[in-house]
Amino acid sequence: MELQAQLNVGRKAELLATAAARQTVQADSLMMRRRWGEEAIRAVLFFCGAVSVLTTIGIVLVLGNESLLFFSSGEVNIIEFFTTTVWQPIAGSFGVLPLVTATLMTSLIAMLVAIPLGLGAAIYLSEYAAPRTRAILKPVLEILAGVPTVVYGFFALQTVSPFLRGVVGPDIVQFQNMAAAGLVMGFMILPTVSSMSEDALSAVPRALREASIGLGATRLETTLKVVVPAALSGIVAAFILGVSRAVGETMIVALAAGSGPNFTLNPFQAAETMTGHIVRISGGEISYNSIDYNSLFAIGLALFLLTLVLNLISQAVSRRFREVYQ
């Protein structure tokens, strides 16, 4: 009896042990075991993704911190910064308005070129061109976006500006001027506006076009009264993104728009933009902690916020348009 009981206990223990072993085997072969190598890889990859967030934090911190130093230096107050019209760091006057007006002026001229031409090109590509024509025309247009901006700047300074002086008159048009820079910038932005607008136009359902043509409208009437209104939010998003590009564009205005702040709305005069000013001042050996150095970051902060808001609006508008037809 005793022996039997002992044997039973032994069997039981044996059975339990096998079961436990089987369980471990199962746990090992399935998800339960942590693979430290895989975990480490995951962590490294997460870090790669986080670098972009660190970049944004870096931008905000750097711009914010240096701007704070600028405004707390005692030489400038924030109201003067945004309301006075003379930017002359040597004389201690820091009114950002002349730089802002020049930025707005060149961007305005650029959009006057890029909006009609970009939308026109988009309509042609989306509504008129045969697929084969489109396959040729579109890449050619996109070359415009791939030309480095310093090349455009050279072109604006060396070719467009003399041309304007020849046409309008050398007394009216200065050697560097906002008009030449703005015009060339418009062509640089054209592919951005056209390819985004074209996406919006192509997303309009075919049924809308067919209904319109079935009612007797010409292709033009269909395009202008049905397709374009239906795609309007996407087109507007493209325009806003174009403005954001124009505001942030640097080399064209640095070379062709002007090399000194000038508070004017005359497009034929030379005037320095926000970006142009940053490039010119930082181009020399600028010493850290000087008021000049800090002022660059204050201008940079204004520029960053302006383009950020424009980009966010553009994204919000285009998200709305996507929701309508999908």
Partner: peptide, 23 residues
Amino acid sequence: IETNIRNLAGVPSIIYGLLGLAI
């Protein structure tokens, strides 16, 4: 992270210059 990457793509290149200068 996703949104941030989309927004970074739209930041003017000169801002990166300021970041590089300061950091």
